[in-house]
Amino acid sequence: MASRARLFKEYKEVQRDRGQDSDIQLLCDETNIYRWTALIKGPTDTPYQEGVFQLAINVPEQYPLVPPQVRFVTKIFHPNVHFKTGEICLDILKTAWSPAWTLQSVCRAVIALLAHPEADSPLNCDCGNLLRSGDNRGYQSMALMYTRLAAVASVPNSSA
């Protein structure tokens, strides 16, 4: 039950800071506090900058001792995100988790991951190979295309 109390705290915090951090929009499922949705803006100077990506956050009962499960709902072309399932390969969501992290800071970490792709531990091998072979232009254009295809279209929905 410690997880519930903590999530309520985070919920209040999110409500209070609403609008302050325009890059991250955290929404809690109205019937289940263990299910959250986040909308994050792609970082500037990356192929994702025009897009808004939806994340599905599933919080386990043992939270915050155990990290939340986060995955991309919006399709994204990124070396550390599984192209089909949206699974994210990020150390802080797996082995380097710390209970001092919040859902807000997890989202911020995901944004940072978009800005700094780690091609050496890829979940999307095609994307990883493009980067590792030095074809930065190829990666940029592929990522931009998928951003425009999947993420930009959802902008009107999210702002509505």
């Binding site: 001792l65 155990v66 082995t95 988790w97 209970p99 001092a100």
Partner: peptide, 23 residues
């Protein structure tokens, strides 16, 4: 105490992550 003694997902490093300060 529950962070340091609790069960953790496999792969977490005891010496640096779990014995370390969460902050």
């Amino acid at each position: 105490r529950s962070w340091r003694n609790g069960s953790h997902p496999p792969g977490m490093d005891l010496k640096t992550i779990i014995r370390g300060c969460p902050v």
